[in-house]
Design a protein around this nucleic acid. Structure first.
Lengths: 253, 253
DNA sequence: AAAAAAAGTTAGCCGATCCTAATCGAGCTC
DNA sequence: GAGCTCGATTAGGATCGGCTAACTTTTTTT
């Protein structure tokens, strides 16, 4: 035996999957909603292994019926695989909320710890934390927490800051970054979820922002990861945007 | 790489030890204070592997300077090994207190979960929990929690119920059991830490006890794991807190 | 469309940890 | 003190998940 983690014990579907396997499923899930999909290379980067290792693991996961794949193509989760992945995403985000709210972690410290704990906590732990926090629906980064039934609300109306036209106003709702340095910068610029902003201008290298009276430049790399709830005010239409970048998200459960 | 756990990150000494290794060290530590010491067989039982596997792991641990051993003899921890072991014991007991007090786990549910989490939490987590609970010195089973500096107070004055003579009175302070069924029984008999009792008689198969007005038999197997704070005189007031005489004892390994 | 680049896969290997089966050693019995 | 028994060790193997190097397929460039 290796490190088959059974923090989950005799629960749902994640029983007897190693931390490693859980991690692959989670990353596949998270990448499936992006433009390029869950490619071998992206997975390798996210997970921190070499591409060859990814190919190997994907084979194993395919044998266990957790993913479906065609060689040289992006992988997809099966329904079973998706359920497990969402379960882990729930663990992760619930833990982030918990670490932040109950243990007083700083905003930028939660990710790493949750990363380690998510594979190990039991169903009971998940429940107790959910109770304690009264079923939160967002983690500290603004990411939606899947419900107990594993339904994941999508932020259809949020738009990435990078693509907003000059004059747009709105409220930052999500910060989809994990990098420590980037998070620090976001904090320093005071661009945390909840902050209302206005786009003062767009540049090739970023977005000029008006927030809290001051004006400053948000690097494009950062702006791409700030999801904004756009106010219907200036000239924009009511929230009804949906298929901006790709297929409907894989979650019919 | 395998499952080298780095929940601990760049801290003390436990950095880069696998969960498995951590577990061995912890069990060696726990067994070192017992009559037979940390023998291959006992370790195998506690850890849930075959004796041959223990021999193998002990060799690796010896190479890393964490244990000292002579073939066919019980193992001992080096100072480094001991430090890591105590660190993990601290994690475990702190987590048990936390699960019980903060998350509302039942008394008999905490062990299993702590077992999984103890290898994964960071130094920060440990600190935050210790703060939240105001540096508790006992876990829910009455086991002493090593201090931040890894000093472990010994319960020198506690005596096992199994060996008390008829007529003894005292207060149960520790329940050194982990087995779920046994714990349930302890709970059913209401023999949790804090309960005051009197030995009504001794039998080959157990101890006859007088507690809360009723009289019942405690099986010898159970009695051996109930540590009692014996009252100096039949009339002595039942000490509310724990021993006033105990002092922190640096654990000579 | 041919060549180059990038991405993915295969093959072979390694280390960690576990296992079973067989052998060895220590300590007690007679 | 010769056995015998039980605990400990060795030998040999399996699995998991990682790696490198070499090769194949897809995509991009010219």
């Amino acid at each position: 035996m290796n490190d088959a983690v059974e923090g989950d014990g005799p629960h749902k579907g994640s029983a007897s999957l190693s931390s490693s396997q859980q991690d692959y499923l989670k990353q596949i899930f998270l990448l499936n909603d992006t433009a390029r999909g869950a490619t071998t290379q992206l997975l390798a980067e996210r997970i921190g292994v070499r591409p060859a290792s990814v190919t190997g693991m994907l084979k194993r996961l395919a044998e266990e019926g957790l993913v479906e794949r065609a060689p040289y193509r992006a992988v997809h989760l099966t329904e079973t695989g998706r359920r497990i992945a969402v379960e882990i995403v729930r663990h992760h985000r619930l833990l982030e909320a918990f670490l932040s709210q109950t243990l007083g972690y700083r905003w930028d410290e939660v990710h790493e710890e949750a990363e380690a704990l998510e594979h190990v906590i039991s169903e009971r732990f998940e429940q107790k934390v959910a109770e304690l926090l009264a079923d939160p629906d967002r983690d500290p980064h603004g990411d939606p927490i899947p419900t107990r039934e594993l339904a994941l609300e999508e932020d259809q109306h949020l738009r990435t800051l990078a693509l907003l036209p000059k004059g747009s106003r709105g409220t930052i709702r999500r910060v989809t970054l994990q990098d420590q340095d980037a998070l620090n910068l976001v904090e320093r610029l005071d661009l945390l979820p909840g902050r209302t902003i206005e786009v003062a201008g767009t540049h090739p290298d970023g977005i000029s922002l008006l927030a809290a009276g001051s004006r400053f430049l948000v690097p494009a790399l950062l702006a791409a990861h700030l999801l904004v709830d756009v106010a219907p005010h200036p000239s924009s239409a009511p929230p009804k945007k949906r298929e901006g970048a790709g297929r409907p998200v894989a979650h019919e459960q």
